[in-house]
C-alpha cells in the first residue's frame, strides 16, 4: 500500500523557484535599463574596439626600458605601504580578537572601525590622498597602507581567534599581564600565519598599486594614464605586459614562500 506523498500547491508548481526566477528577470531588465545597455551600439562600434585591440597587439618595444624604473617603484610602494599597514594592523587585530579582549563593547567598536575602513575602494583612497599629500608615490604609500590595514587586521584577528588557549591559560595562571600574554603566548603561535597573510596582502597590493598612478599616486599607473591619454596603445601594451610579468613573479614567489611557511 504505497501512497505517493501529497505535494502542497507551492511544491507542485515550484512556486519558490518560479518566483525567484521572476524576481531575477525583473532585476535584469531594470538594471539593464538603468545602465543604458545597448548591445546594438556595442556591435556597431565593435570595429573601433577591434582596431584598438589590434594596436595593442603591436607593443612598442622601444618603450620597454622606460617602464622598468616605474614598475620597480610600484613594487617599492607596495612593500612600504603593506609594511606600514601591517604594523598598524597588529595592535588593532589584538584588540579585535575575541579571546584576548573580553569586553564585548570595546571589541565591537574596534571591529566597526575596521569594517568601515574595509569598505573604501583603493582608487577612492588614492584620489583622497592625492588631494591631501599631493601627486607622487607618497600618496600611493598612504593609500596602500590604509587599504592593507583594513584587510590584514581582519585576517590577523581571525588567526588570533583560532589559537590554542593552553599557553594563554598557563601564562595567566602564572600571573602574566596582557602584554606578556600577547608577546609570549599569542605571537609565537600566529607568527607564521602573520607572515603568510602579509605576503598575501603584498600580492594584492602589487596588483592594486599598478593602477593607483592613474590618479597621480605614483608608480607605473602614471605612465599607463599618459599612454592612454596620448592614444599610444603600443605603449599601453608594453606597460600591461610589464604589470603581468611583475604580478606573476610576485605571486609565484609569495606562493612558494607561503607554502613553506604553513
Amino acid at each position: 500500500m504505497n501512497v505517493v506523498p501529497k505535494r502542497t500547491f507551492a511544491q507542485k508548481y515550484h512556486l519558490k523557484t518560479v518566483s525567484w526566477l521572476v524576481v531575477f528577470v525583473v532585476l535584469i531588465i531594470v538594471t539593464a535599463d538603468l545602465t543604458e545597455v545597448d548591445f546594438g551600439m556595442f556591435f556597431a562600434n565593435f570595429g573601433q574596439f577591434l582596431a584598438l585591440l589590434q594596436q595593442m597587439m603591436h607593443p612598442d618595444w622601444q618603450f620597454t626600458h622606460l617602464v622598468v624604473a616605474p614598475i620597480l617603484e610600484t613594487i617599492q610602494m607596495a612593500l612600504i605601504g603593506t609594511t606600514i599597514g601591517t604594523l598598524v594592523a597588529i595592535p588593532f587585530s589584538v584588540l579585535a580578537a575575541r579571546n584576548i579582549v573580553k569586553n564585548k563593547f570595546f571589541r565591537g567598536l574596534i571591529r566597526f572601525i575596521l569594517n568601515l575602513v574595509r569598505t573604501l575602494p583603493d582608487l577612492m583612497l588614492a584620489a583622497l590622498f592625492v588631494a591631501i599629500v599631493g601627486i607622487g608615490p607618497v600618496a600611493g604609500v598612504f593609500t596602500l597602507a590604509i587599504f592593507s590595514f583594513g584587510m590584514i587586521s581582519k585576517l590577523f584577528y581571525e588567526a588570533i581567534e583560532t589559537i590554542d588557549e593552553g599557553p594563554l591559560e598557563a601564562l595567566e595562571a602564572a600571573g602574566a599581564n596582557k602584554v606578556q600574554l600577547v608577546v609570549f603566548a599569542v605571537i609565537p603561535q600566529v607568527f607564521n600565519y602573520f607572515v603568510s597573510y602579509f605576503l598575501y596582502t603584498f600580492e594584492i597590493n602589487v596588483r592594486a598599486s599598478t593602477v593607483l598612478g592613474y590618479l597621480g599616486a605614483g608608480g607605473i599607473g602614471v605612465y599607463l594614464q599618459r599612454s592612454l591619454d596620448q592614444f599610444a596603445y603600443g605603449q599601453t601594451a608594453v606597460i600591461i605586459l610589464g604589470i603581468l610579468i611583475v604580478v606573476l613573479v610576485i605571486d609565484g614567489l609569495s606562493n612558494t614562500l607561503r607554502e613553506r611557511l604553513l
Partner: peptide, 16 residues
C-alpha cells in the same frame, strides 16, 4: 591581471 580600469577605457572607446 588585466587592469579593470584599462578595460573600462577600452570599452568607453567602443560604446562611449
Amino acid at each position: 591581471t588585466f587592469p579593470e580600469i584599462v578595460l573600462a577605457i577600452m570599452f568607453i572607446k567602443a560604446v562611449g
